[in-house]
Design a protein around this nucleic acid. Sequence first.
DNA 1: GTCTATATTAAGATAGAC
DNA 2: GTCTATCTTAATATAGAC
Lengths: 202, 202
Amino acid sequence: MARTSGSFSQKTAPRVAQTALKLFAKYGYASVSMRQIARDVGVQVGALYNYTPDKQALLFNILLQHMESLLVAWARYPKRTDPTDQINDFIQFHLEFHFSKVDEVFVAYMELRNLNPQNFVMIEKLRCDYETVLQKILNAGLAAEQFQIKDTKIATLAIIGMLKEVGTWYRPDGRLGKPEIISLYQNMTLDVLGSKHAIRKK
Amino acid sequence: MARTSGSFSQKTAPRVAQTALKLFAKYGYASVSMRQIARDVGVQVGALYNYTPDKQALLFNILLQHMESLLVAWARYPKRTDPTDQINDFIQFHLEFHFSKVDEVFVAYMELRNLNPQNFVMIEKLRCDYETVLQKILNAGLAAEQFQIKDTKIATLAIIGMLKEVGTWYRPDGRLGKPEIISLYQNMTLDVLGSKHAIRKK
DNA sequence: GTCTATATTAAGATAGAC
DNA sequence: GTCTATCTTAATATAGAC
């Protein structure tokens, strides 16, 4: 049952990346072997090296494409001027993006330390850029006197932490639908920021 | 320079566990070899097996002892009756405990998937027990009408997420001291819970 | 582009001498 | 209790045939 020469290349390329992503998310980068990836793709291990120079590049490309697509998607997201609106938009954007990229997000959070040093610097830069998006909204809200924040950096990290946790429990068939989750996190975030929206709630 | 027979056993036992913890925290369980642990301990690899039946047991014991000591420490922590006080105490307890166990906490969060299935069930049970501690305080605060929470489970997870994130950036020589961090997180948590403390803040 | 075969290295774990 | 030596398996990566 040897495969005909050249007959699956266009299908194989994306399958290698997708399979690596799926396995890295499930078992962790260090626990997944090239043989395991090859088996799930349906090729012999030698064939993988037509698509990646090595295992590290598989991880790096997953993280690079994920972070770049995240930042590009935010750049294209329509912006409103009011800081409270911006927070609501950011939470909605973030959660919707992450609902659709569960594996990528998980690998991005878990496998940073398995990047080689040069690759780590590149990804960490992009992660910082994304954090800065949120921090700037907080600063805008402070300037507009809509938020009451004692420490902007800590508030940024707390919100990132809150949102990150969602990835550990969200299931498409879970108790809450996406809109409900988004709404809950919008409210909790504005609470953390001391926004006046809190008055509306009561 | 062979070691004298039997001369280091009492020192070696804790060193094996501590070295495994340190290396697992830094490089990840799957990336650390028994040879690497042996080298850092200062023995040959065969000697490790006097202290552990296998590598998996090293990980499991780290997580088991961490979770048990966490739950025991909370059980012994003085309890106040007011739910708002309880939240403040829980945040203080949690952060102080985690400040002192940075590596244990990190390994506990990162390496769950490298536990074998039986070990995973045991650790997950303890993790749930700890989550329940917080959720019960939230329910008490709701019953006492001190908190405004739309979804107790989600609020619990959001707070856990906020606190977990601290482990990724806390450094003993960082910008903020432990008391400042604890105070900030107490405030943000009460904000998320819609506590009336928020009025005091303004 | 994929296969088979292999080079090379290293992993977890064990046996037996001291 | 530790050492040296070794068994067995499996890892990443490459070479060359088809």
